[in-house]
């Protein structure tokens, strides 16, 4: 591992200055993703700015908004009373991720900004446009069983990336329409979780729309009517401790057997947490039946495409959507 200078600021402003002015500097929170990348030589910061002593750990509820500090641990959020009561979907997604040990280390901010698990991204001997811009995408015609089916563009091989964002938590946050609060050299701003991550487009090396030095300070979720009928379904290769092949966050606001509104998002299918807005709309005003859910799943799959090994996701994804909705509705 390349040597680095270790810095431990206790003030937000100081931390931002340390990273925004230096392209070789990096924030570190739980370290569960970054240290892995550093050990493998994929990321090699010269300066490591430990943000764990910034006051960003609180989980608070105020007038209809739950605010979760960026340094709150995944395990703390999943066990928090207000989260369990108002947004059980988020707790469920968090509990399905990683392991007991990792959830005790992983932070909310780090979880949002974790890198893809595409094996070629980690294999420095092979081309990868995300790791090494313009080098090519090994997954396109390689092992792509776990790769994306939505939001991919493959016309330009030097720009292609079909990797997925691996977070479970972000899928729930997308369905809950959360805001992410940022603090950077230019001040503070607020961004929808759906706008934070990006599709690869012409810059597969960029995962997010954050600017250099911007720090996630918190996530906010507004009150909603979905707590009673929500479900996070994670389909994976083993019963526990594996990344999602596909996952679905489903939430319904049901009134007298009719769907007043719905929220749907998927994981394991795109370069970002994939919100299914058209499918959500298609559920509005519909009866709570399996056939309504099937129709929504059909709408959701418009534009999906496979790359060979992951073709099975074209069938698995709609089935998972239906199943998540059925469970959310309490039908099955």
């Amino acid at each position: 591992m390349k040597p680095f200078q270790y810095l431990r600021p206790s003030k937000l402003k100081a931390a931002i200055e340390m990273v925004s002015g230096d392209p070789q500097a990096r924030y570190i929170a739980g370290g569960t993703n970054l240290i892995d990348l550093m050990k493998r030589g994929i990321v090699a910061p010269e300066k490591l700015v430990d943000i764990n002593h910034l006051p960003l750990k609180k989980i608070e509820y105020k007038t209809g908004v739950l605010r979760i500090g960026a340094l709150a641990l995944n395990s703390e959020v999943a066990a928090h009373e207000t989260v369990l009561q108002k947004h059980p979907l988020l707790a469920q997604a968090l509990d399905s991720g990683a392991s007991g040990q990792l959830r005790n280390m992983a932070t909310v901010g780090g979880n949002i900004l974790q890198k893809t698990r595409c094996t070629y991204f980690y294999d420095t001997a092979l081309p990868c446009n995300k790791r090494e811009p313009e080098s090519g995408c090994s997954a396109l015609e390689g092992i792509n069983r776990l790769h994306a089916i939505f939001g991919t563009e493959t016309e330009n091989p030097a720009k292609t990336c079909i990797a997925v964002h691996p977070s479970d938590m972000c899928v729930a946050l997308a369905a809950l329409d959360a805001d992410v609060l940022l603090s950077g050299p230019g001040g503070e701003r607020r961004i929808k979780i759906a706008d934070l991550h990006r599709l690869p487009g012409a810059n597969p090396e960029l995962d997010t729309n954050l600017e250099r030095g911007e720090l996630i300070t918190a996530v906010e979720i507004r009150d909603n009517a979905f707590a009673r009928n929500s479900h996070y379904l994670k389909v994976r290769d083993r019963a526990s401790y594996a990344f999602a092949i596909v996952s679905v966050a489903a939430a319904l606001d049901i009134d007298n057997g009719q769907i007043r509104s719905a929220r749907l998002a998927m994981g394991g299918v795109a370069h970002k947490p994939w919100r299914l807005i058209a499918a959500e709309k298609s559920l509005e005003g519909q009866p709570v039946t399996e056939s309504s859910f099937r129709k929504a799943a059909e709408v959701a799959m418009v534009g999906a495409r496979g790359f060979g090994q992951n073709d099975f996701k074209l069938k698995l994804a709609p089935n998972a959507i239906v199943q998540a909705l059925l469970t959310a509705a309490g039908i099955e």
Binding site: I35, L48, D50, Q101, L102, N104, M105
Partner: peptide, 19 residues
């Protein structure tokens, strides 16, 4: 590599000691 840090189970291979 599981150890307890301040009473919580964690992975000692994924944290720098200085942290």
């Amino acid at each position: 590599c599981t150890v307890h840090i301040n009473g919580q189970r964690t992975l000692s291979c994924l944290t720098f000691a200085v942290m």
